[in-house]
Design a protein around this nucleic acid. Sequence first.
DNA 1: GGGAATAATAAGGGCAACCTTATCTTAATC
DNA 2: GATTAAGATAAGGTTGCCCTTATTATTCCC
Lengths: 222, 222
Amino acid sequence: MTIQPLSESTEMYLKAMAELNQHETVAIGRLAGRLNVTAVSANEMVRRLSEQGLVKHTPYKGAALTKKGREAAGNVVRRQRLWECFLHDQLKIEWTQLYEYACSLEHATAPEVTEALAVFLGSPKTCPHGNPIPAADGSFTPLNGIPLSEVSVGQTVRVLAVNASAKEVIVHLHERGLLPGRKIKVTAAAPLQGPLTLQVENREVALGLHLAEFVIVEIHSK
Amino acid sequence: MTIQPLSESTEMYLKAMAELNQHETVAIGRLAGRLNVTAVSANEMVRRLSEQGLVKHTPYKGAALTKKGREAAGNVVRRQRLWECFLHDQLKIEWTQLYEYACSLEHATAPEVTEALAVFLGSPKTCPHGNPIPAADGSFTPLNGIPLSEVSVGQTVRVLAVNASAKEVIVHLHERGLLPGRKIKVTAAAPLQGPLTLQVENREVALGLHLAEFVIVEIHSK
DNA sequence: GGGAATAATAAGGGCAACCTTATCTTAATC
DNA sequence: GATTAAGATAAGGTTGCCCTTATTATTCCC
Ligand SMILES: [Mn+2]
Ligand SMILES: [Mn+2]
Ligand SMILES: [Mn+2]
Ligand SMILES: [Mn+2]
């Protein structure tokens, strides 16, 4: 099983679901937004995906990946993140372009190539954005961190990963020094969903709460 | 110009034309055969390609690449052959699989990635099959060799390149040791388009005349 | 409990690439 | 100059994935 090649579109739906929510249900609207299609189109596609047993759709509740779908999605993510490592470490491609370029390559990569690439790269555990690279069977342990948006004022944290796919978001975060490994102090939080004020490497940065959701951090012990 | 991204299908048609015939006209039937589509489909597609100015179609004569089409085709070939180098030299993928795997990747590769890959690989001049890698502008000088099928009995030649795309052909030639660099003596030629008999590294090999067309050789001086 | 937001469904279309079957045209050949 | 093979064209289909507009159903929340 899991040997039939999936279309690029199918792979992107599965990946989007995995990125939005590993296990729980994903609202059709969010899926549509992430993939830049209308809700009607997303509905149609989810129907096709559930006919293929990749997704379980509960009307008015949302869609969830099945075991089969989760494995397939993990595999797509694996391919993307391995390519990101290659593009970054070997080809010296800009950090902000990695996601986009790897997002094309991921659909054109045979299993044998994927595994040879992993070996070539030394079986990296995370991509250049800090996200974990799933195993060959599609499984992986999510990061043990929380979104920056949930950190309370006064705390110091370390960036584990940047988990964004929209180019503008990636560029925005990059420009503000929000990269894996960086130490950050949350110095203020504006009311009414206003921006956070951060201390990033001796630099004061304002960051919208929504944008902070994409930054996964761990509390900086000591 | 030449900035619009072409569809995978379009790129494959252009590449097939370049592989079949760099400059002259290509018969629609051959194109259809190479791409595994019906002649009707090839006709339709050639019409679309000529509407885009990539191809010049002369009814009942055949189709030829325009300057624009030749550049685009050269670029596809460049991407493929660079990936073949990577897959072979770095990932250690089997020689017989290179064409197929690179044929997927070629359509998913942005110009920036292509050029970074070329630099990473040290700007190779030929692919692992011995074929020249076009420049970034799509231009390249064809090999200065002749098909093995045109060599006369008694001559000794050196293999410059294997220029096949069908997997079975590639495997067949590989099994018989017909790889770039090999020295070959043509010891006999059967009548009525029968097979050639070759001396390949102390081994006697029979090779169909049709298959010999894919092996590009140079006369072995001295 | 009613209204708003979200989701689902129905109906009708579009586009790129493919397909089959049938008819007609041209080129090549003897 | 007639035959034949190859090519062109016409007509009608299919599949995947997308769209709009309209209607209906459900859930959520004040
Ligand atoms: Mn992708
Ligand atoms: Mn990444
Ligand atoms: Mn290809
Ligand atoms: Mn090659």
